[in-house]
Design a protein around this nucleic acid. Structure first.
Lengths: 246, 246
DNA sequence: GCAAAAGTGTTGGAAATACACCCATGT
DNA sequence: ACATGGGTGTATTTCCAACACTTTTGC
């Protein structure tokens, strides 16, 4: 009997009303969105946390999130949270994974959809007036509230992978950047050292960096040339088949 | 005022009770899991659909799914659905994406978490007694009920990508398989033609295929050798750094 | 013996890597 | 002048793609 109910929307011969009542019945959960917001500053990958508001997690940091509104789709919710916290809206944002362990939230069942976002720290200088919002080094995140450490780890791994396959990194940099900055970014995200000459060769060969014929200012050494990322050129060139490679 | 409520669980200074009441209030949605179940048969990639039970979608096929139970985590739910429909439980299963458009389901708001599953058709011979369950060619899926076509497309793309980077394909094959079968599998999933000699070279070089010293039976031509996939060997060899490559 | 697929090596080109020196600027 | 990072080229190696013939089995 309970089973018949639970098989719900996919068992055959069921009226719309039956389904509707199931959908609107007790079979519902709270749904939230949590955003892992990455930035890049001082040659380090940063991530944005806020103080948890739960006593249980006092003094713990947590991700930026909120309940999804009844008439709000998931992406919208993620953008809203980002906008509320940072004032930004034109940023890279990607859904990563949904976490639904029954007891992941102490206040009851809350299923959360994790989003990963990349923002350009220079371009907005967060209104970190209230001391609840802080940038942390992404490579030394320890305990977080709830299961947010797991969510962070998942998003960080995803970022490391995605950044190797797609030109996301540019979202973390200013519109104009030097190759040194770009290389620092990759080295920071991936925790590796890259050969400078080969790095340049590779990106020039890709041929979607536009030389702006400008140079860095106020650097205590020979200034580097500045480039921007040409998305259209990338779109035309990007490859489809990479090959089987475990 | 409404905004204060909606900022909910992440605004500071909020008691546990406040949060709890929000979590248990109207801010809840129905949550379902939909499974895109792939199989491989007759050298074709197959996907499992069922007849939609909604009049609105009469005669349309839909994915296998169900509402998530209040005390059930997402993965558990996905495995339950698979088990109920196919009798299998020891299969590859991966969460892919969550779809939460407000009006994606006619009976009210239902957010659904999509899972992708790979099963070995030979190993179970579905109890397709009721004529609601059917295998379809994955390369010619047309209209589906709800937004299931979008969900299917997302899972199919994910499969195509994942199968190139991880040894998932073996889940679709019998425990013992010939290299021809393996190659057919990749060609079917990726819709490409591969050079047989290079394909063999590649997989032998990977060195996690175990030669079983057996040969195919009942084939109308020279029988091929049979192999199995050695997961332990793979675990030791798999690479971490692949390189920046857009 | 014929049809059908199994099995097997080599070669040329492309891409990745490793590596060292001179240059431009700020101090 | 010197310290700092910018900018460049080449040799080597590794990987990938292209390609054809002989072998084994069922019929």
């Amino acid at each position: 009997m309970a089973d018949a109910l639970n098989n719900s929307i996919l068992k055959s011969i069921k009226t719309f009303k039956t389904i509707q009542s199931e959908v609107q019945s007790i079979n519902r959960v709270a749904l939230s969105v949590d955003c892992v917001i990455f930035g890049f500053d001082e040659n380090k990958l940063k991530v944005l946390f806020i103080r948890s508001d739960l006593k249980k997690y006092q003094s713990k940091w947590s991700l930026l999130g909120d309940l999804v509104k009844p008439e709000e789709c998931l992406d919208t919710s993620a953008y809203r949270i980002l906008k509320q916290r940072t004032g930004l809206d034109d940023v890279y944002m990607e859904q990563v994974h949904t976490f639904g362990d029954v007891h992941r939230h102490p206040a009851g069942r809350v299923v959360t959809v994790a989003y990963c976002s990349l923002i350009n720290i220079q371009h907005h200088k967060l209104k970190i007036l209230d001391n609840e919002l802080h940038w942390h080094d992404a490579d030394s995140v320890s305990e977080l509230a709830f299961d947010h450490k797991e969510i962070f780890d998942t998003c960080f791994l995803r970022l490391q992978k995605r950044v190797q396959e797609h030109p996301l990194g540019f979202s973390l940099l200013p519109g104009k950047f030097s190759l040194r900055e770009l290389q620092n970014l990759y080295e920071a995200i991936l925790s590796i050292k890259l050969d400078r000459r080969n790095f340049r060769k590779k990106f020039f060969a890709m041929d979607f960096l536009v030389d702006l014929n400008e140079i860095e200012k106020n650097v205590p050494h020979r200034p580097g040339r500045l480039y921007k990322f040409d998305y259209d050129k990338y779109e035309k060139k990007k490859k489809k088949w990479s090959g089987i490679d475990f």
